[in-house]
Computed example of a mutant assay.
Amino acid sequence: MSVRPVTVVTGAVGGIGAALARELAPGHDLILSGRNVGALEALCAEVGGTPLVLDLTRPESFEAALAGLGRVSNVVHNAGVVELGAVAEQDHAVWSHTLAVNVVAPAELTRLLLPRVRAERGSVVFVNSGAGLRANAGWGSYAASKFALKALADALREEEAAHGVRVTSVYPGRTATPMQEKVRSQEGAPYTPEAFVRPESVAALIAFALNAPRDALLPDLSVRPGPQ
């Protein structure tokens, strides 16, 4: 009888995170992290997951929060924040918060969980963004964090190959999520979810990377809205 993989998902109550939890639930034991405790508990009850309370702005608190965990096969870094604004207008507080949540937290969480993931010859997936490949006006702080996240993933992939750990970056285009609704509001544009990628489609792609045969490595995956 095969042992079910244990997969940690951050940002689990967001659009992509919740869709991923539902996508993985039939075949994975899930450890789910999110900011909205009520929504997180409801999702865990729905999919049979275990809640993991993390404050991503306090990486020094991660070790204690993770101490009670057993096996971990995979880690999906899905949590993220975005605040649009020109470089001339955004102060250091925005940059510090964005980089802390989008880069420092995934780096520290990965470091602490790597011994468990190595033991399982598992996977680490970073949910990046199209902004991690190209920076447009008004997206400086967010794009900088996502470029840094790509660098983290690329370095980790090379470092962990000898341990049998697979590392994948996923670059979704605009996706119909609450974060995208916030972005459209900041852009002063209407939110039209039917024009964007469904979070379930991104979740299916992440699940494909996690469940791929061991002889396949999918280092970079991009997904864009398809023709309507």
Rank of each mutant, 00 (worst) to 15 (best):
V3F: 04
R4Q: 13
T7Y: 00
T7C: 12
V8P: 07
G11V: 11
G11H: 03
I16T: 03
I16Q: 08
G17M: 09
G17S: 06
A18H: 02
A18R: 06
A18C: 03
P26T: 05
G27I: 01
H28M: 13
H28S: 10
I31H: 02
I31D: 12
L32D: 04
G34F: 02
N36C: 06
A39G: 01
A42D: 03
A42G: 10
A45H: 14
A45T: 00
V47S: 06
V47Q: 05
L56D: 08
T57P: 04
E60F: 00
S61Q: 13
A64H: 07
A65G: 07
L66N: 08
A67N: 00
L69H: 04
G70N: 09
R71G: 08
R71S: 04
S73F: 01
S73H: 06
V75L: 15
V76L: 08
H77E: 14
A79N: 09
G80C: 00
G85Y: 02
A86R: 15
V87G: 08
A88K: 04
E89G: 09
E89S: 13
Q90V: 01
Q90E: 13
V94A: 12
N102I: 12
P106E: 04
E108P: 06
L109V: 02
L112W: 04
A119P: 05
E120D: 07
R121A: 14
S123W: 00
V124M: 05
F126W: 07
F126T: 04
G130Q: 10
A131G: 02
G138P: 01
A143M: 07
F147A: 06
A148T: 11
A151L: 13
L152Y: 11
A162T: 15
V165G: 09
V167R: 00
T168M: 10
S169C: 11
S169L: 11
G173Y: 09
T175Y: 06
A176H: 00
R184Q: 15
Q186L: 08
Q186N: 03
A189I: 11
P190W: 03
F196E: 12
F196H: 12
V197P: 07
P199Q: 01
E200L: 04
A204H: 12
A207I: 09
F208V: 01
A209W: 08
L210T: 05
P213S: 02
P213C: 04
P213A: 08
R214P: 00
D215L: 13
A216S: 14
S222D: 14
S222N: 14
